[in-house]
Design a protein around this nucleic acid. Structure first.
Lengths: 192, 192
DNA sequence: ACCTGAACACCGTTCAAGT
DNA sequence: ACCTGAACACCGTTCAAGT
């Protein structure tokens, strides 16, 4: 990679971060190139698809999330570890609006530049899930893909302006559906 | 409404139905006008916004859903009525891809042409919810907006090609989170 | 009263031409 | 090896001109 290429690459990612923060995951690629003072074709050679740009943009955060899952795997109790990671995942997709749609479609498309990240996140969560299932604190009839789907759907929900204020509250409802002990479900706790 | 206007109006809706079936809620308005053999400006005068077009396109189905809610309000048991209506709502948003995003944003935007339909659906579901809550079979700490948000999020989920096959299965997980008696939650049933 | 073509300002993609 | 301007085929919006 030549020096000028490297400089453009880094600068494009920095600018993309700003633009995507403002306009969400379907920000204009043209706008990014423009604000980076770079030819539009230059952007598209560095990042041939929108997914490729987001892969570069999110790689570090994705690796962090996977690392956090590994660390939580040795922390107890397993159900709390699962819920903590779920919460981290939701916080992650909230950083940029609309990225859970990208991850969801990438998960089903092996050719997507985000496919590797998508499946890595799914299986990181799956490991925490099976550990809680082995303990009996997570319901046994869901798998990693189900968990990933629920996380994506909840990420979509909190990304909707009208629903965002309900995020914290509905977080307990969703995690209450995944866990069996009702630890985050006040109603069921009262029934016991 | 002049005869030619009425004819164009009806024809546009019929064509829109086909195009939206093919391409989902963000189908090209231009494409609809083209396939209806009508000037683009004609489409935009009949339906000044995309939301206005969908309002006309979905009005009948929305009214049906609200009517079903009214009928279910007198049917027992209340928790089953709530779940049945939830299922109908999911089936509805599945008819065209991406419409739950329209309803979700319309719900937060009073100026949207879909705002009335959106709030009508929300309060139709809310009535079934409070009835089940009064009986104690639905968790007491959620309201109509929460239910609408969960329905929308689940509608988004089943609209994702990779997650769609999980729809029926995850339906039980979501409704299990809303109900307190675990009637659709095998794991909890086994625990009792 | 209703329709239309055309102009406008966008978008992503591609590629020949430049350094 | 890397960048760029321009062309291409799209998109939604608007409006003067037609019937």
């Amino acid at each position: 990679m030549r020096a000028d290429a490297r400089k453009n690459y880094d600068h494009l990612i920095a600018v993309a971060r700003d633009v995507v923060t403002e306009h969400g995951a379907d920000a204009s690629m043209r706008d990014i190139a423009r604000r980076a003072d770079v030819g539009l074709a230059t952007l598209f050679r560095h990042f041939p698809t929108r997914e490729a740009l987001f892969e570069a943009l999110l790689r570090m955060k994705v690796d962090e999330l996977i690392q956090q899952a590994v660390e939580l795997e040795t922390s107890n109790p397993p159900d709390e570890a699962l819920v903590s990671w779920f919460r981290e995942g939701v916080a992650f997709v909230r950083t940029y609006n609309g990225i859970c749609a990208l991850f969801a479609t990438a998960h089903a498309d092996p050719d997507s530049a985000l496919h590797a990240s998508s499946t890595a996140l799914r299986s990181a969560g799956a490991r925490l899930l099976v550990r809680a299932q082995a303990e009996g604190t997570a319901r046994a009839d869901i798998d990693g893909v189900d968990l990933f789907a629920l996380m994506s759907a909840f990420g979509w929900l909190v990304g909707q302006p009208g629903f965002a204020p309900r995020g914290d509250h509905l977080f307990h409802v969703i995690t209450g559906a995944i866990l069996t002990n009702g630890s985050s479900n006040d109603v069921k706790k009262a029934a016991f």
